[in-house]
Design a protein around this nucleic acid. Structure first.
Length: 576
RNA sequence: CGGGAUGUGGCGCAGCUUGGUUAGCGCGCUAGACUGGGGGUCUAGAGGUCGCCGGUUCAAAUCCGGCCAUCCCGACCA
């Protein structure tokens, strides 16, 4: 690539609407532009990076026995009715009609189409297992697109689907994908963690997310350094601390004028927040349910959904409080709350010495004991783990940190195959549903994650495996004939070797060239300047370390060859 | 959807409170000259429906109303 002829519109200043490093740098360095909220254009360098990442994914997927296909973005409503997701997916799915009024959705994911494809064309156990994947655009009408490529509405995703004859086969397919994912992220230069994950709208029982640790990550992950426990906080469990016991004191009603929040009441009564019972009112499928958690904890609604066995619930809104006038907002408590189902966090089992709302304006109860003063219908794990909690496996201290979810794998089981009648015939000719798995990688999100992990205040620092080019040739003062010739000569030598290089052949000042080069983040840089005038030597610079080495042309080429060879070796080896 | 903020040449911003005649600055862009190892200097230029619609006024970038867009926080989502 000749920089003078390549579309790389760099920006001296940061775009006003970019907050995080990856978004800011990808736009500034001319990889990316925004066309609307959550919708981006990929410029030549951005496209190259996408291709690099895609290539790594293809190599690992193919090596793992998956076959690449291409599925449509536009999908008929009928298929989604079959799985029940036409209504379940809600406004998250982009919908449109054709001229005849037929309804379609833009695929946010492809379980329906792939299941339809396989059920129509695969009918024998002899054809299983089968693993099909594609790399293509996905659409999700996110409530709030943000952070550039991290949460976009149109994005590139690799999605794979496995079909097996039984559960064991499915587990094997799952493990194969799990292993391939680790290699993919390692090859892309990321440090990552696989964590136990919730399955959400996709469904299934077992799932792992691949997380790239980053401050800007939207997910919180609970990790144990002592054992291997790692889970998304949405489902991470933790050992409860010693539950406070009652001392048999009599229940007492205390006047607490205008004190409603945990902080206000705790301060007024002189009690730790953990001694207060937070009584959250939820409307669950139309009926009120009380959820009790210790005052210093938040309810975890993903866990709650599991306990309630429904997604149809929400915290009371204003109207709900009006509909249930016997429940006093700010003073609800479990004592005497007979008409309402009560679910409590495990921590409160047998707890005493508690305080809670008295179901009477401006009053709270103290010396409350579970079992004696109120009864819980169900105890469950309904609060989130946080840093400092005890690991559920080994009891050591958990750490909660932010991460970017770059991939997720699911054991779907029979969810789609039964709903959509995706069956095969076994040796006896008996029709059985296929066991499915699905496996996603957010390709463009991964690109952003790589930048989050690899940048400094001057620009991007691409890992060689995904860089848009391996070498950036800068000839300073391009008007000087000898330097220009040397640069052109080096450029040609690289091209002959089939390397991807960028030649800065612009007549810009040295400062501009260096600044742009830092911004673009190509791993190696060959500078042709004063050293060349002196003794014909070139300067090889490493973007990551800023180290510089003076050497002659041949040494530089040999050095790069070594680097590229190492990259190839890494590609073949394991990761993790 | 709730809360907050912003919208002025390609980019980043000032001007708006207190309306006034040619709407400014930096960067970028064009032409020329000099310079040439960290966004260099000078000269001369081009480029703007001040987000959109309506209202108030002799007069609106500026005041008022509505709408749209974008970003942030939350809710939501995996």
């Amino acid at each position: 690539m000749r920089q003078s002829r390549t579309f790389i519109p760099t920006l001296r200043e940061s775009p006003a609407d970019a907050e995080i490093a990856s978004h800011r740098l990808l736009v500034r360095a001319g990889f990316l532009r925004k066309v609307a909220s959550g919708i981006y254009e990929f410029l030549p360098l951005g496209t190259r990076v996408v291709h690099k990442i895609s290539r790594i994914i293809r190599e690992e997927m193919n090596a793992a026995g998956a076959q690449e296909i291409m599925l449509p973005i536009m999908q008929p409503r009928e298929l989604w009715e079959e799985s029940g997701r036409w209504s379940k997916y809600g406004p998250e799915m982009m919908r449109l009609k054709d001229r005849a009024g037929r309804e379609f959705g833009l695929g946010p994911t492809h379980e329906e189409v792939i299941t339809d494809l396989v059920r129509k064309n695969v009918s024998s156990y002899r054809e299983l297992p089968l693993n099909l994947y594609q790399i293509g655009s996905k659409f999700r009408d996110e409530v709030r697109p943000r952070f550039g490529l991290l949460r976009a509405r149109e994005f590139l995703m690799k999605d794979a689907y496995s079909f097996d004859r039984d559960e064991e086969g499915m587990r094997l397919s799952y493990q194969t994908m799990y292993d391939a994912y680790g290699r993919i992220f390692t090859r892309c230069g990321c440090t990552w963690r696989a964590v136990e994950a919730a399955t959400g709208l996709i469904g299934g029982d077992v799932s792992h997310e691949f997380m790239v640790p980053a401050e800007v990550g939207e997910d919180q992950v609970a990790l144990c350094d002592a054992c291997s426990y790692a889970a998304n906080v949405e489902l991470a469990t933790y050992r409860r601390h010693e539950t406070p016991r009652g001392e048999g004191k009599a229940l007492e009603k205390v006047f607490t004028p205008d004190r409603r929040t945990i902080e206000e009441v705790g301060e007024f009564l002189g009690l730790e927040p953990s001694r207060l019972v937070k009584c959250l009112m939820y409307l669950v499928e139309g009926r009120p349910v009380a959820v009790l958690v210790p005052g210093d904890r938040e309810a975890n609604e993903v866990k709650l959904a599991r306990v309630l066995e429904t997604d149809e619930f929400r915290l009371f809104n204003e109207a709900d409080w009006r509909d249930h006038p016997q429940l006093l907002q700010g003073f609800v408590g479990p004592v005497g709350l007979d008409s309402v189902e009560i679910i409590a966090d495990e921590y409160l089992r047998g707890a005493g010495g508690l305080a809670c709302g008295a179901n009477q304006a401006d009053y709270h109860l103290v010396n409350v004991e579970e079992g004696r003063d109120f009864r819980v219908h169900r105890f469950a794990d309904v609060t989130s783990a946080r840093t400092g909690d005890a690991c559920p496996r080994c009891g050591e201290t958990l750490r909660v940190e932010a991460g970017i979810e770059v991939g997720q794998v699911f054991q779907l089981g029979l969810k789609y195959s039964e709903a959509m009648r995706c069956y095969y015939h076994d040796e006896e000719g008996v029709a059985r549903p296929m066991y499915m798995g699905c496996y996603g990688i957010g390709v463009t999100r991964l690109m952003a994650a790589v930048v989050e992990q690899h940048h400094d205040d001057r620009g991007i620092i691409w890992p060689p495996s995904v860089a848009p080019a391996i070498l950036h040739i800068l000839a300073l003062d391009y008007q000087r004939e000898e330097r220009r010739r040397a640069a052109e000569d080096l450029y040609r030598a690289c091209m002959e070797r089939g390397w991807e290089v960028l030649l800065d052949d612009r007549e810009e000042s040295a400062g501009v060239k260096f600044a742009d080069a830092d911004l673009l983040g190509i791993p190696f840089r060959a500078v042709i300047g004063k050293g060349y005038d002196e003794d014909g030597s070139l300067e090889l610079q490493e973007r990551a370390t800023s180290r510089r080495f003076r050497m002659d042309r041949e040494t530089l080429l040999a050095h790069l060859q070594d680097t590229l060879d190492t990259l190839e070796v890494t590609a073949g080896g394991g990761g993790g």
